[in-house]
Design a protein around this nucleic acid. Structure first.
Lengths: 228, 228
DNA sequence: GCGCGGCGTGAAGATCGCGTGAAAGCCCTG
DNA sequence: CAGGGCTTTCACGCGATCTTCACGCCGCGC
């Protein structure tokens, strides 16, 4: 969930923004002064800054400048001032957008989406996991061994993903069943036996001397391979 | 020097923008239709796109979508329309900013600076992709095989674009349906079967031994061709 | 030493999803 | 209003996948 920091000295505007933003699934934090805004931007590391220009303490452009000293967070300025000079000053200080009050909530939300979309480095590119000659690419959903691609069925892949993303942890039968098969499951340990076996076979693991998936009798399974 | 591509059908606006932009040290290129705009964005690789929404040929948001298929260039929309819905549509299609006419030149220049400042060194998809004898021109929406042009229906092209712009990645049924058919879709896997088959046939791929589109049973499809 | 529960193994039946072919609906143009 | 292109829908056959079952083995407690 994305965190939005609202900086405005008027309580009713803070409340209105909070309501609308939270209704659209954002987490909202509000402060009333520029000073608090700069500190909040540093401490809370928000995904978006909504900044009113008419603050009592510091000038809005100054807030932007100070925030820009340490953060690239998208900043959208809200203001009653129509003047071009204010807009130019705010934008050149480092703001990403400038919206004049009164503004439509839909428009503001769209501009917020646009601003946040840009800052995303796409996907945090979860790295390809390597375990010896085994390679698991969660992003592309590809598994290779000795350079050869291994075909996994959806269930097999789901199980492998659950294991690999929880390395070293003991995953109980119930937890795995719920994770891979869905909420309604939890007792079908024969499924697990069947699919753990299929995985071991395809990944080249040996149940008697496992290097990847260890059986914890009566409890569950554990992914023990060391990433390298 | 930064290159700005202006897309507007009114010559006097083109001239006005050119004058102001050149006076501020920008190199300016202008075109009058959405089609030329998309192609220009591909061939000239501008640092900024100024796009009028009221174009004679293609809808403005469609121009944005097409450009976004291969480029992350900042896009600022210019429009006479005040309506929020237009703004939201344009911003969600991928625009960076939306300025309503009449606008002040100083403000536009400031917004342009802000938009370009954000530009990050990212690897854009090449507008023309080649896969062996297959060539996909994302800017002109042209597909050729052995030099022969292949005719694709809009849906077929949309599907191909979704695949080609996400090479190697497993695209789930739901993701593809939402991307190509729209938000309301997600379960109509028969559509996918029908159109994947049509694409394979037209592109010369074989479902049994696919070189372009691989089926991931129960999950989705994957574009596996290597660009060259 | 013996019974028992849990596991690995093998395999079989049921089910699902895919590719295929085709046809019906829809929309725009002539 | 007739035609053609495009989209949506349906039925079928087949192979892959999921589910289920039976059996033997091992470790553990009695």
């Amino acid at each position: 969930m994305s965190l939005v920091l609202v900086v405005d000295d008027e309580p009713q505007i803070r409340r209105a923004l909070r309501t609308s933003l939270e209704a659209h699934g954002y987490q909202v934090s509000t402060v009333g002064t520029g000073e608090e805004g700069v500190v909040g931007a540093a401490e809370q590391d928000p995904d978006l800054l909504l900044l009113d220009l008419g603050l009592p303490d510091i000038d809005g452009t100054e807030v932007i400048r100070r925030v820009r000293a340490f953060s690239d967070v998208p900043v959208i300025v809200l203001s009653v001032r129509e003047g071009q000079t204010d807009k130019v000053a705010a934008l050149d200080a480092g703001a990403d957008d400038y919206v004049t009050k009164p503004f439509g909530m839909e428009e503001l939300l769209a501009r917020a989406r646009a601003a946040m979309r840009r800052k995303q480095p796409e996907e945090p590119t979860l790295p390809v996991q390597r375990f010896g000659e085994l390679e698991v690419d969660l992003a592309r959903r590809l598994v290779t061994r000795d350079g050869e691609q291994i075909h996994l069925t959806p269930t097999e892949y789901g199980l492998l993903e659950a294991l690999v993303t929880n390395p070293g942890k003991l995953l109980t039968h119930q937890w795995l069943l719920r994770k891979v098969w869905g909420q309604g499951y939890g007792t079908e340990t024969t499924y697990l036996r069947t699919y753990v076996r299929a995985l071991r076979k395809k990944l080249g693991d040996d149940a008697q001397a496992p290097a990847l998936i260890v059986t914890e009798p009566g409890v569950g399974y554990r992914w023990v391979a060391e990433a390298n």
